[in-house]
Design a protein around this nucleic acid. Sequence first.
DNA 1: TTTAGTGCAAAAGTTTTGCATGGTC
DNA 2: GACCATGCAAAACTTTTGCACTAAA
Lengths: 143, 143
Amino acid sequence: MARTLQIKADLSELLARQGVRVTRQRLEVLAELSRERDDVTAQVLWRRLRERDSQTGLATVYRTLALLADKGVVDTLSHHGTELCYRLCTESHHHHLVCSSCHRVVEVEQCGLGNWLDTVTAQHGFVATDHRVEITGLCRACR
Amino acid sequence: MARTLQIKADLSELLARQGVRVTRQRLEVLAELSRERDDVTAQVLWRRLRERDSQTGLATVYRTLALLADKGVVDTLSHHGTELCYRLCTESHHHHLVCSSCHRVVEVEQCGLGNWLDTVTAQHGFVATDHRVEITGLCRACR
DNA sequence: TTTAGTGCAAAAGTTTTGCATGGTC
DNA sequence: GACCATGCAAAACTTTTGCACTAAA
């Protein structure tokens, strides 16, 4: 209870920090994302909200996720085929380990690219602005 | 001319090697992919084919790309938002350097993950089956 | 009070599917 | 000849948009 209020305050602050308005709908989307262990599509997230009797519309879910992705508050992944998946992430640089069987997603804080990244981009005349590593495999439970 | 025939023979062989039937439509999709410097969506590829007066249907393009992706003959990328992009790739392990301005895609043959990959997956109890690195930046021409 | 955000329903766009027909092996 | 592949059109989905209304700052 006290904890729920605490989380809500955190999420409000998170939104405020991005310079956008704090609305019930955005808080609901964030709260739902923070409950998800793994990644979800906009459609799935919306269904979860409905199950909780939220009145938030699907269009708002799309708009909110796009906004949050733009601000860097959520990450987008797209491992399984065509639809985009969203996930609330830690703010620091990190990468993902994805289980191909259960879709469990683990964040990895370290980044092993370092020198290689510099070498390779320089070789091709690129200036890297971002990079992502997605490692697919089987988690302990699924092997 | 002789070169065109040569390419066609190569592509036929490529299909045969996958154990699937060699059809006009599949050859056209492969030929179009081999002409693309960068990546394309199913929709774009189909439009290109139409411009060449191909009769190949959109559904066939989707079915063919899915088949080729499944066989590992093409790679799928999904950098810009929602739709999947396809690209004919070299068969060896490689990664991509993508220009965020012009969408130019450069394949990088070396892979700098090596030890880090092993360490990180072991740490989390995963067995890695695959991984992809996508480096985004600006190419020489776009800076 | 001003302006950004939302809901709804419609539109746009993408991908998949069923089924009769045609082509490869 | 057997069976896989295709075309077409319909269906199923996903995502975006216009606009009147609501709520945050």
